[in-house]
Design a protein around this nucleic acid. Structure first.
Length: 273
DNA sequence: ATGGTGGACCTTCCA
């Protein structure tokens, strides 16, 4: 091996890797703010959800100019997920490798960055408990678990991040009473999340902050919920145990929810040592 | 009592 390859490996794998998940709610509407935030936070990997772009409209050149390789899985008007990386981007894939049919929506993409298998996911909203979309949501989460079980072992360095549209516990919503009878807090949704935990994923935010509540990642645009601190923690970073062991810092950047034309979600960040 | 906001897009859907 040439000496420079060793240096390259140190650069790629031994330094702290900063990974971020951010539902940008339209990359067209948010591009300037995303660029600004990239220069501020300097993440190594940025996973985005709800780009709402077709693949041929994805601004890859803009991100390449900032030093990132990109992989985008989009469909146009709705959904759309992406992974940006400056620590390598290998083996890109979309949807589930579970032997089933392709997903109807562009909601999941994968890449290996800095030695970590990373997923950017936009889990279906569910809309209402009696809506077919709610069934789709539960089936989608079941497929995610099956994908993990078939493609990986819990000993692998795997990091599944994104907008899960599930609040893991009642303390992860501003007022549990306001969500009675609604999606995001139901037992079947939480059981689907628990199935991911049972396989071997850890909620990195909750591992870092076992006690605090009232720390959210999403605030509805309506009714001034952000300013009233009425939000939900639904954007999650789920890592296998080896990833959890490497976790040095987890934070939600509430500042990114302020100012002109913010997304309704804040970026969630993890530093891996 | 059922709005309020924001993004996509064309009149209504989605969150």
């Amino acid at each position: 091996m040439r000496a420079t390859e060793g240096v390259d490996k140190l650069t790629r794998y031994s330094r702290v890797v900063r990974v971020v998940s951010w539902n940008v709610n339209s990359l067209n509407a948010r591009l300037a703010r995303v660029e600004e935030w990239l220069s501020l936070a300097q993440p190594d990997v940025l996973c985005m959800q709800e780009t709402k772009l077709a693949n041929d409209a994805f601004p890859a050149l803009t991100f390449e100019a900032l030093g990132y390789e990109t992989f985008h899985h989009g469909q146009g008007q709705w959904n759309g997920v992406a992974i940006l990386s400056r620590v390598g981007l290998d083996d890109p894939a979309v949807d589930f490798a579970d032997g089933g049919v392709p997903d109807t929506d562009a909601r999941l993409c994968w890449a290996t960055c800095g030695g970590v298998r990373i997923a950017s996911g936009y889990i279906p909203n569910g809309r209402a408990i009696d809506d077919p979309h709610y069934t789709y949501k539960l089936e989608w989460l079941d497929r995610l678990r099956n994908h993990l079980a078939q493609q990986h072992t819990p000993d692998d360095p795997v990091l599944v991040v994104g907008d899960f549209n599930i609040a893991p516990e009642d303390r992860d919503v501003w007022d549990p009473k306001a969500f009675e009878g609604s999606t995001h807090v139901t037992e079947p949704e939480r059981e689907a999340l628990a199935a991911l935990y049972d396989w071997g994923l850890v909620d990195l935010f909750r591992r870092q902050y076992p006690e605090p509540d009232g720390l959210y990642t999403y605030w509805d645009y309506q009714a001034g919920r952000f300013h009233k601190r009425q939000g939900m923690r639904i954007d999650l970073l789920l890592g296998t145990e080896s990833i959890a062991d490497r976790t040095e810092w987890v934070v939600v950047d509430r500042n990114a929810r302020k100012g002109d034309k913010p997304s309704d979600h804040a970026p969630v960040l993890v530093d891996l040592g």
